[in-house]
């Protein structure tokens, strides 16, 4: 049956770093939208099958990693007859610039979509230099 599966909708993750994963599952890169508002950068990632427990967002050394683990799609006493979306975990990483306030990142999950709000850091205040009169 595997020749009938077509993974046209999903893309495998390109940057699973150089390390290997312990589980031999497929890993997909979720499709994301990223847009910028005045105060924040908002990221939306399509990760069907995840909830707030199975999603994982980490920020380390300026690299934001989003991950999701999904439980296998098993239907008892039934056999798969046609498959387009193989199940697998999610992984994708982005580098963040300094303009993001790393202590203030909001994350939420709704209907399989992960939403991250990355607030921008306060712009450094201009330092006024006083001029003395000699």
């Amino acid at each position: 049956m595997s020749d009938m599966s077509k993974d046209i909708q999903k893309q495998t993750a390109s940057t699973v770093q150089e390390t290997e994963r312990t589980r031999t599952r497929k890993v997909y890169a979720p499709k994301v939208d990223i847009y910028e508002t005045k105060e924040a950068i908002v990221m939306l990632a399509d990760m069907p099958g995840i909830d707030e427990q199975s999603a994982n967002v980490t920020l380390e050394k300026g690299v934001l990693t989003i991950e999701g683990t999904i439980s296998p799609d098993v239907h008892k006493d039934r056999t798969i007859a046609y498959s387009e979306c193989d199940w697998g975990d999610y992984h994708r990483a982005f580098t963040l610039s300094d303009e993001v306030n790393k202590d203030k990142i909001e994350a939420s999950v709704k209907n399989g979509v992960l939403r991250l709000v990355l607030h921008k850091a306060e712009p450094p205040k201009a330092k006024k230099i006083e001029i003395r009169k000699e």
């Binding site: 046209i8 069907p48 239907h75 006493d77 039934r78 798969i80 007859a81 498959s83 387009e84």
Partner: peptide, 22 residues
């Protein structure tokens, strides 16, 4: 081809799953 679907066959029923996030 949206949404992507999987079809599971049973003896007396069929289960269709579709990934439609958001």
């Amino acid at each position: 081809d949206y949404p992507p679907i999987n079809i599971w066959m049973g003896t007396d029923d069929v289960v269709v799953t579709a990934e439609i996030p958001g």
